[in-house]
């Protein structure tokens, strides 16, 4: 992996100069700023941003991630003809995409908090930023996996959108079905597990628990609160979110190393 840094350096430069990352950053910047101007306190802005972040960050990450890898295909071939190992190249490309996306998000959301709230939004903002960054990493990794698995670009885009739909929308429908069919059984623990398995849900619940909305969640919420309040719960949640970046990336890397160009 000795060339990862070198590749990363130039890929970062390329991506950061691209206009879309600027647009992406500006979208978050404007949105956050406007929410503040419409009289939101730090916490309320975080709450309003939450839905957008949970939908937009994964969508943009997975779409741009796949697009980027397909687009770079010829250059990848060119680089692979150089004395470069595939692992370095893959990780360098991944970093070159995930870092600007995560950075653009963090800057776009974070800056308005600095000048409106003086950074004083506390742990809720922290969780929002961390969740957004980890979701970026996870869905960029999923994007890379999709792009490596599907040679055909149209199929790849389709798969990317499908993965996003599954995680962002359909999954919760399944959870709801589980709740409504099995409600006679104690569901708190299975729900906890189901939540842990979907990075978007995990992010959503971690954010919900930051607000006193948690009180609305009654007994279920109390169990979630206790779990995610404990060091073990926090560690596990973080591990799972990170695993959602690492596992797809590893599978993608495996395929990338075996792939014919």
């Amino acid at each position: 992996m000795k060339s990862t840094g070198k590749i990363l350096r130039y890929q970062l430069r390329d991506v950061i100069r691209g206009r879309w990352i600027l647009v992406y950053t500006l979208v978050f910047l404007l949105m956050t700023d406007v929410l503040f101007r419409f009289g939101g306190s730090g916490d309320r802005v975080v709450l309003s941003l939450m839905n957008v972040v949970l939908l937009l960050v994964p969508l943009v990450s997975i779409i741009f991630g796949t697009m980027y890898l397909y687009h770079a295909r010829e250059f990848i071939v060119m680089l692979l003809a150089q004395p470069v190992d595939r692992t370095s190249l893959f990780l360098g490309l991944y970093g070159g995409m995930a870092i600007p996306l995560a950075g653009g998000y963090a800057v776009g959301v974070g800056l308005p908090f600095l000048w409106h709230a003086g950074g004083g939004a506390g742990s809720a903002l922290g969780v929002l930023l961390l969740t957004g960054v980890l979701l970026t990493c996870a869905f960029t990794a999923l994007a890379f996996l999709v792009a490596v698995l599907f040679e055909d670009r149209a199929k790849g885009f389709g798969a990317a959108v499908l993965v996003w739909l599954l995680a962002a929308v359909v999954y919760d429908g399944i959870v709801l079905m589980v709740v409504t069919t099995l409600w006679r059984y104690p569901l708190e623990r299975p729900l906890l597990a189901l939540t842990m398995l979907n990075p978007i849900d995990l992010g959503r619940v971690l954010l919900l628990l930051q607000f006193d909305i948690a009180a609305l969640m009654g007994y279920t919420g109390a169990i979630f609160n206790r779990f995610f309040g404990s060091a073990v719960g926090k560690g596990l949640a973080l591990t799972v979110l990170v695993a959602w970046s690492v596992l797809p990336l590893l599978v993608g890397l495996r395929r990338f190393r075996m792939k014919d160009f």
């Binding site: 350096r9 130039y10 770079a72 060119m78 003809a81 150089q82």
Partner: peptide
Amino acid sequence: RRGIGYMPQAGHFPENLTGREVLSMLKHL
């Protein structure tokens, strides 16, 4: 591959880099 110079059919490089940067990237690698 250090001993191979390869010229693919068409040149595709990262679009926002300059030619000089592409060259220095390869030199770095």
